[in-house]
Design a protein around this nucleic acid. Structure first.
Lengths: 135, 135
DNA sequence: TATCAACCTATTGACATACTAGGTAGATAT
DNA sequence: ATATCTACCTAGTATGTCAATAGGTTGATA
């Protein structure tokens, strides 16, 4: 289940894309438009900045802006940044310690196949697919 | 992410299917074979009994057994019983209160489409597809 | 230098996860 | 009848995550 972190991050990025005009967009405006607590959004945009998805600028006239074109943001990258790996089971997380049951686990092939489907879906879907009004 | 409850439930059902011989199988045996705490499994099988997936019998010679053929257990039903709805976002849970943003939500169609894929995958996959040794 | 905005650390209440502990009730073998 | 084996029941606990809130510091511009 996707939590508010992932869902709000998506809404922030959609908001930034829909209001893109070359300048920085203050978080206050995004919070007001999206009707989400600005304080809580600070945590989310901090992750987006650290993850290299947006850039922030302090001071008067400051705010946030996208670093790429909307078609260059896979939804999967956004979700994984906010929620952690998309993996369905712990033993399929990248760099997880090898499960001793892996070789004979009757369910592992199912989880693997499903994870591939999830990955394909969310990495082929782009931020640009979620934007309604473009200028 | 599927938790131990869902994963262990699947292992219990696979174990029951693979050792099916008309008699009841004691939880002690399942716990030993699967190397999972019997006490913890008690919580899981209780849910499986309440959910109508298996039946339990007390006393000497008692234990648990399947109530259907393995091809009649969709993996999705097992997971939803143990983990709750497969829905990716709260607003798509059956009987959830209508989200006020639903009509204009830019991400809802994506979540809907994805939920359909997840549902189709796990309801077409059956317990019988996970069994390795059949008699 | 006043203003506006990002950025930083910390705390909180509620809930879920993964167990453990100790008992009661029910069915069968002797 | 009773010992034995089994499911079944209620409760507790440590750890972590979620969804926020609170208050302050740094940085850029007018």
């Amino acid at each position: 289940m996707i939590s508010t972190k992932g869902r709000y991050a998506l809404r922030v990025l959609i908001d930034l894309a829909e209001h893109e005009d070359g300048s920085y967009i203050p978080l206050k405006d995004i919070a007001a438009r999206q009707n989400i607590s600005k304080k809580y959004l600070e945590i989310i945009v901090k992750n987006l900045v650290n993850g290299g998805l947006i850039s922030g600028m302090s001071g008067k006239g400051g705010g946030y802006r996208l670093l790429r074109n909307p078609e260059e943001y896979p939804v999967g990258e956004i979700i994984e940044l906010m929620e952690g790996p998309l993996a369905t089971v712990a033993c399929l997380v990248q760099d997880a310690e090898e499960c001793p049951r892996a070789a004979s686990c009757p369910t592992l092939p199912m989880w693997s196949e499903f994870d591939q489907i999830v990955h394909d879906y969310f990495y082929s879907k782009k931020l640009s697919d979620l934007i309604q009004v473009r200028q």
